[in-house]
Design a protein around this nucleic acid. Structure first.
Lengths: 147, 147
DNA sequence: CTTGAACCTCAAGTTACTTGAAGGAGTACG
DNA sequence: CGTACTCCTTCAAGTAACTTGAGGTTCAAG
């Protein structure tokens, strides 16, 4: 088995976890990662545990969890005397938010579609035309394009 | 007809356009709104033109356009010698971005769904259980929940 | 004339990093 | 051993689009 401990520089760790090196220093600064041990020269060193923790953080961020949520999830992932339900609830709430956002974006997509379509229908004319595209947008109703 | 000019305080304008008062000051500061005339006491005053402009900005922001895009759209909406195609293109590009974001969110929704489902299936147990939910997330593959 | 809401400016906080400047550490080559 | 080159260090500031707070002034009503 692999009994030897891999040691990473900050750059190697960054590449392995798929984040940037300033991001790692930032995570250390805000306490998501523990202060890394240093070489005699002051450079940070990491091991596989750090890679695991950082990878976990990265995955959570990819899931769209905010830093504070990641903090909670990290804690939950370490303590053994807490149940999974809390984690599930966090994920569920987050899922609800994602769905909310999805609904908003879908509505926005439809509105933008309409906008572009009306543009294409009414504004095929070249330059020099007096485009009235925005007249409708200065009133609180729906946006229009080119009259 | 309405020949009298409506005059707004910043608060009234904010309410009419659906934004906050600090936001209006901020828009003035960054040049989206012209510097407002002041009363003798130094308070800002606005009229219907300002309401129109601010409403336009609000609509654009609701459409998801960034401040810099709004700047361009404002200019396009004022100049008469430019054609509508430029506007359409900006909207089209933005629509593409929205669709890209939608695709990402949909994917994220599916992943979160899976996460929550696995949580419910495996983690119905109460507190005190040793939750291994995060073991999978410390490796670069897909996230898992509760083994 | 006094009260209270709404207004003023200026500075800092928010999120999650990124970017830049100026300089030190580590490694390989000759 | 020198030097070249990459990677590392810290610290400060920048990003987007505002929000929040402190401390003080103006306006309209009663």
């Amino acid at each position: 088995m692999n009994l030897h401990v891999r040691v990473f520089t900050i750059g190697a760790l960054a590449k392995a976890a798929g984040v940037s090196t300033p991001t790692i220093r930032y995570y250390e600064e805000i306490g998501l990662l523990p202060p890394a041990p240093r070489t005699a020269g002051g450079q940070r060193t990491y091991d596989d545990d750090d890679l695991g923790r950082l990878t976990f953080i990265k995955q959570c961020r990819d899931f769209g969890f905010g830093i504070d949520q990641v903090r909670v999830l990290l804690e939950l992932s370490i303590s053994t005397d807490r149940d999974c339900v809390e984690t599930r609830d966090i994920a569920q709430r987050h899922l609800d938010e994602v769905r909310q956002k999805l609904a908003e974006l879908r509505s926005l997509e439809r509105r933008l579609e309409g906008f572009v379509t009306r543009c294409n229908a009414a504004c095929a004319g070249g330059p020099g035309q007096d485009c009235v595209i925005f007249k409708d947008m200065a009133v609180p109703a729906k946006g229009g394009c080119c009259g």
